[in-house]
Every structure is written in structure tokens, then in C-alpha cells.
Write a protein that binds this DNA or RNA. Structure first.
Lengths: 343, 343
DNA sequence: TACCGTTACGAAATCGATTTCGTCCATTCG
DNA sequence: CGAATGGACGAAATCGATTTCGTAACGGTA
């Protein structure tokens, strides 16, 4: 069995309190005693019991990551997010506990709060706005510091960390305009409300700034619930009487799918059609041609989320942490100047 | 503050012990009392304190995942592994705690053991054999159940879960032979000792079974420490007086790199050269041509590792858990019959 | 009626720390 | 010299559960 504080105090002939105070730098301990205690602790390899300490201190030095999302497919976003969060937490002597099976199950989240096994919670992928507010209220009632990720939540009291998707869509659109495109198609995904709104407003903003008229027929709302959802948008746009010279897809996988559909259809990319994705997944770099996209750094989002949560824990959640991180345009080979000058 | 067992017992006018026994189904409690207690617990939303329970029960219902590896690049292996492990753990009412910053730091691992904040440990990516044995001894001394992943460790007492890499390389080689290839090049990576050994022996075995002479000049040992390591093997093989008709790369990224080198060099794949990777990363599915590879299921490995660790915890680690999981050949478009019949 | 066994419950110990508070002793000051 | 001050330490309470063990009450039997 591991060495306890009692073993240490017996060996040294001092009280448990003195040992505790010596090791934690609190209370009055003479320099000599302190030295003896630390020395003996090292020798015996004493390590305080996490459970006992947590019980007494009423904090666990652990934070929870609740993946509030059915993990359909593997994403490199998660692969970058999780280790980054864990690493940042560890720098602050915290650890990360994963909770993957409580999507939408509020009672399980309540149990988690009441059992006090974490000091704060990061909720990855908040649900729809209304539900998020309910969740926030519940967590606030339970006095559990929490932060949402990676979507912004339009509510003053709610903490979140998200990427600047308006900027992302704007950068992409501006880039295509600078290449000479005038008919730029845009895929929306209303399911992810704020993200969709931001992206669309970035797109519209770039068009407006360039004096290009917003054309409703060039904007489609995808429905990710549909089976062949990732082929529909492409087919829709190409079937238009006057097809666009460039398409901005909502996600990289859709854009990648379009790449192969175009190949099958004999449409050369980027010569005859420019295609762009969004997210900067690893796969987007190895397609032929490599995909132009926008990258949000999952690592940076995760790191900031952890840091913000630690602040909430330290400040007792006095004021909400709200952060929007810049994104990066990755211009690659799937986009080029349009053949006919974009007319 | 959360409801404690004392609050419950006060409200009901029974003792704490009775409440505890009622909720945990131990000891003698009359059906009537039990009903009253469960009812009140539900009403008040009582949830036992994790710290108090851990302290008394001497177990935490948590397992640790120690990523004993510098996470160089994002890998979809991790993205699939971690959620899978967390989910399987949760089915058994355990949770997963991540430790990403203790690669090679044995004292930190010892602290983790002694603080008893986890009931068992999964070590992702064991170090070299000798160090792994040392680690195993240390963990055994600390009476900490543990299992290594995703590499086998050739030692009877050590628990691990790994993929069958001998089978993987054999399947790939057999497949190429069945296509008509006779000169099949093979890239080794001595750095990952057992994995490399298994893969190479699967390759050699397939050749032998087909009566093809093992040609040393077709086998190269890569050095992943070198900067341009992923281009070297390809260049080496293509510079041979009599180049191979097919190349088996050690990893998908190397094979993908070879795909673009071949394009640059005007070598058509698969018509003039067959290329295969290994691991089945997501990217391998979107290259042009799509990459033939072997997939090991990170999800299955992780799930089995957790299940095995839970057995070790339950059995007090009586006998080592050693599991080798089958892999899956993914024949895709980067391999085909050789132009000249493979002569 | 006296005795015994069973049932249902509670008092108290326990897990291993932290923290509060009181005490002892040596100085220092008036 | 007596009282006040403060440094160093320990006894005991505390955190919130679980578990052991003792006992009251009850019913059945000799």
C-alpha cells in the first residue's frame, strides 16, 4: 500500500498537521522541520492521496470534456483538440476527463455536477441555442464553471471559444473574387445555426464590398440528414442554366466529393471550375488537385478553452469568457482564375 | 452546495449507514425503508461525492491513458482511439483521464500511481523493449494494473493489445503477387522494432510461399529521423538498375508522398508502378489514385484495451492479457497488374 | 415465562488528507 | 519579575461517504 501522511508523521515523530503544513507551505513550520519533512517525503516517495485531498479541499484539479455530439466519423479536429486540451490542462496541474456518452442526457450531466468529480466542464458542440441556454442555466445552478466549444453562443452570460467563421468565408470569397470570379456559389448548412449565419454573412459581405450582386440561385441550403447530401449541392449548381465558376462548400469532405464528381463528369478543376472546402482537414492536402480551404486551429481553440475555463474556476465565473479566434486561408490548387474571365 | 448523505438521513430521520446501505444494496434494509430512501434521494437529486466514495472504497472508477509519445502530428489513429476507449470505459461506469505530458518521465508516472487517482493505466506507444520491461516492473511494484497499446511486447508477463502486422504485410504482399508482381520492394522502419519485425516477416513469408526469391536490394530501412525521409525510399528504389514493379511503404503518408513524386516524375500509377501504404488513414482514401493499404481499427484496439484493463483490475492482474487483432486489406486504385507481366 | 434467533437499524470507526484552534515555551517589554 | 507576544507544534474537527459491529425489538419455541 502507498505511503500515507501518517506513515510519514510516525517516522518523523511529528504530527500529521505539521507534515501537511510543511509540504503545502501553509501555517508555521520551522525551516528545520520543513527540511526534515520534505527530505523524508522524498525518501519514502510520499504522494498525497488524490481522493483524500479532493475530499478535504473540495476541488479535484480535473476538468471534464463533454463531447455533446454523436461522434459519427473520425475527425482530425478531435485528434488535434483533445491532446491540446489535455496538455494545456496539465501545465496548470489539471487533468482532463473525457465524457463521450452523454449527448443530450441532461440528467447524466447533472449527476456529473453533483458528484463533483470535476472542477469545470467544457462542452464540445453545444446544441441549438435554446437548449444551450437551458444547459447553461442548469450548470450555473449547479455552480459548475463551464464553457462551450467550438461554436459561439449569442448570449452575454455564456462563455465560449469559437473560430471566426465570418472572416473565414470572407477570406475565401475575397480570394476567389481576386482571381476574377464573379459567379461564386455558396453552400449553407442551416443545421449549425450560428456558424452558418456567420459564414453566410462573410460571403455576402465580400460580395457587397466587391460590388457583386448577391444571387439567390447561387446559394443552396444543404441538409446533412439526407443520405447523398454531399453530392446534391454539386449536382444542383452544375445543372443550373448558367453554372457558377466557383463553388464554396461548407465542409472539406463535400468539396473532396465534388472533386471526384467533377472528374467523373469530365469537368477539369481548377481550369473549368474552382472548388473550395472549409476546415482544413488533413485529407484536403492530398487530393488532386489539393483543396483550397480555410483552416481553424483545433489546437488553439482547445488551448484557449482550457485557459478560459481555468479562469472561470479561479474567478468563480464572475464574467463570461467569450473568444473568437482568427482563421487561416489555405489557397491551394483547386482554385484558379476562371476560363472566361468570370463573366 | 450539493446534497450530502447526511442531508438525506436528516430529512428521513434514519442514520447515514442506513441510507448508504439502501442505496448500495448492501446490508439489511427493510423494503419499506429502502423505498423511502431511494424516493428521497431522487427527489433531492442526491449524488454521492466521488471523492468521498473513492477515499472509502479505495478505487476511483477511472482509468488513465498515458500517451507516452511526442504527439508530432495529428493522427486519425488517436482520433478514433480516444473516443472509443472513453466510450467503452463509460459502459462499465469508468471514465478516462488523459495524461499527455509524461513521455519518458518515470517519476511522474510513479506519482500518478501513488496518488491513486486511477485504477489502471493504458500506455499508448510503449518505448523500446528494455524500457518497457522496466516500466512494467515499476507499475507492478506499485500494484497498478496496466496494458500497452498498440504494440505487442514480447514478454509473457506483459499485457498488450496490438494489430497483426505480420498478417497485414502478408496480405498486401500476397495481393500484389496475385496481381502478377514479382519484384516487390519493401520499406522497413527499424525504429519500431516489433512492428517492423512482424511486417517484414509477413512480407518474406508471402514471398516464400509464392516461391519468389527474397531480394535484399528490394528492401530498404528508412530512418524517420532524417528530414526528407519520406522521399528517400522512393528515390532509392526508382534509381535501381532494375526497379521494382511495386513498392510497399511503411506508412500511408510515405506512400502518398510517393504518389506525388511519381506524378512529378511522369511515372503513371498504377500502370507503371504499384504503390501501397499501411494504416488506412483517412487521407489514403482521397488521393488520386486512391491508395491500396492495410487498415488497423484503432477503435477496436482501444475498445479491447479498455476491456482487458478492466479485467486486469477485476482479477488483480493475475494473468497477462495479450491480444493480437486482425487487420483488413483495402485494395484500391494505386495497385494493378504490372505492365510487363512483372518479369 | 425464559430463551433464542432474526430482522432492522444506528453508533462509531475508517479512508487520508487539510485546517482550525489551542497550548507550550521562549523572548521581550514594562 | 510578571505579563504580553509570537513561534512552532499538536489535538481534534472536518470533508462525505462506506463498513463493521453492536443492540433493540420482535416473534417463535420449549
Amino acid at each position: 500500500m502507498p505511503v500515507t501522511i501518517e506513515d510519514l508523521s510516525n517516522k518523523l515523530g511529528v504530527s500529521r498537521s505539521t507534515v501537511s503544513k510543511a509540504l503545502n507551505d501553509r501555517g508555521d513550520v520551522s525551516p528545520r522541520t520543513k527540511e526534515r519533512v520534505t527530505q523524508a517525503a522524498r525518501e519514502l516517495g510520499y504522494q498525497p492521496s488524490a481522493a483524500a485531498r479532493s475530499l478535504r479541499r473540495q476541488r479535484t484539479e480535473k476538468i471534464g470534456l463533454v463531447v455533446n455530439y454523436p461522434i459519427r466519423r473520425v475527425s482530425d479536429f478531435l485528434a488535434e483538440l483533445i491532446p491540446s486540451m489535455a496538455t494545456v490542462a496539465e501545465e496548470a496541474e489539471y487533468n482532463l476527463i473525457l465524457y463521450t456518452s452523454m449527448a443530450g442526457q441532461t440528467e447524466r450531466l447533472i449527476s456529473l455536477c453533483r458528484s463533483r468529480e470535476v472542477d469545470g466542464i467544457i462542452i464540445a458542440w453545444p446544441p441549438q441555442f435554446h437548449e444551450t441556454v437551458v444547459l447553461h442555466r442548469m450548470l450555473t445552478d449547479e455552480r459548475m464553471p463551464h464553457i462551450f466549444l467550438p461554436r459561439r453562443v449569442p448570449h452575454d452570460d455564456i462563455s465560449y471559444v469559437a473560430a471566426d467563421h465570418q472572416q473565414g468565408a470572407r477570406l475565401l470569397t475575397e480570394y476567389l473574387i481576386s482571381l476574377g470570379h464573379g459567379r461564386i456559389a455558396f453552400e449553407r448548412l442551416p443545421e449549425v445555426y450560428e456558424t452558418d449565419y456567420d459564414r453566410h454573412s462573410g460571403y455576402a459581405q465580400a460580395l457587397r464590398a466587391a460590388g457583386i450582386k448577391y444571387d439567390e440561385s447561387l446559394v443552396i441550403s444543404a441538409d446533412s440528414a439526407a443520405a447523398d447530401y454531399d453530392t446534391k449541392s454539386f449536382q444542383h449548381f452544375m445543372a443550373l442554366p448558367d453554372p457558377p465558376s466557383a463553388i464554396l462548400f461548407f465542409t472539406d469532405p463535400s468539396a473532396i466529393r465534388a472533386l471526384s464528381l467533377a472528374r467523373e463528369g469530365g469537368i477539369r478543376i481548377p481550369q473549368e471550375l474552382s472548388v473550395a472546402g472549409y476546415d482544413g482537414v488533413l485529407s484536403s492536402g492530398v487530393t488532386e488537385p489539393a483543396l483550397t480551404t480555410v483552416r481553424q486551429s483545433a489546437g488553439a481553440l482547445g488551448a484557449l478553452a482550457v485557459e478560459s475555463l481555468l479562469k472561470l474556476i479561479a474567478n468563480d465565473g464572475l464574467e463570461a469568457q467569450q473568444h473568437i479566434l482568427p482563421v487561416e486561408l489555405l489557397p491551394r490548387k483547386s482554385t484558379a482564375a476562371p476560363a472566361n474571365g468570370g463573366a
